[in-house]
């Protein structure tokens, strides 16, 4: 019944649509939410959608993991390993930045009792 999903065109279309929706949900969170943690979550969602798009479009149905073992001796019908390696790296970087952001937000909250983006007003234009 779901065999049509094995068509790369259909699958990639769904991936593009889904990741773009996710990207814009993240963008909405970034622009419309005021709590610092929610803003950070919005940014994390945007990052995740980019990772998903990359992995989703770089692989097609029927491809196997790019590992030579168990009788697999040639590089045919394998997914391109580069996007997966890159995405892993990007996830690690994204996690580090997110952790730094959350820790700064927590410190700011402890110091001032505020967690609202709109309350970040120590530094602003004069008058």
């Amino acid at each position: 019944m779901l065999a049509f999903l094995n068509d790369p065109g259909v699958l990639h279309g769904i991936v593009v649509l889904g990741t773009l929706i996710l990207f814009f949900i993240g963008l909405y969170g970034l622009l419309a939410k005021r709590h610092l943690l929610k803003v950070l979550i919005g940014i994390a969602l945007m990052e995740l959608s980019v990772y998903l798009l990359f992995i989703g479009l770089a692989t097609s149905p029927g491809e196997t993991a790019p590992i030579l073992s168990d009788g697999l001796r040639s590089f045919t019908h394998m997914a391109d390993p580069v996007p997966q390696a890159l995405t892993l790296t990007a996830i690690v970087i994204g996690l580090a930045v997110l952790a730094l952001g959350v820790s700064l937000a927590i410190q700011y909250h402890r110091l001032t009792g505020r967690a609202d983006v709109a309350s970040l007003t120590e530094l602003k234009e004069p008058r």
Binding site: L30, L36, V39, L40, I43, M46, E47, V50, V97, L98, L100, G101, L104, A105, Q107, Y108, L111, T112, V117, L120, E122, L123
Partner: peptide
Amino acid sequence: RDAPALEAGLKYLLIGSVAAV
């Protein structure tokens, strides 16, 4: 680690991560 410095760091981090995305 006082309020202005943390605010600068947070603002920089938010805008910088968006740029990186």
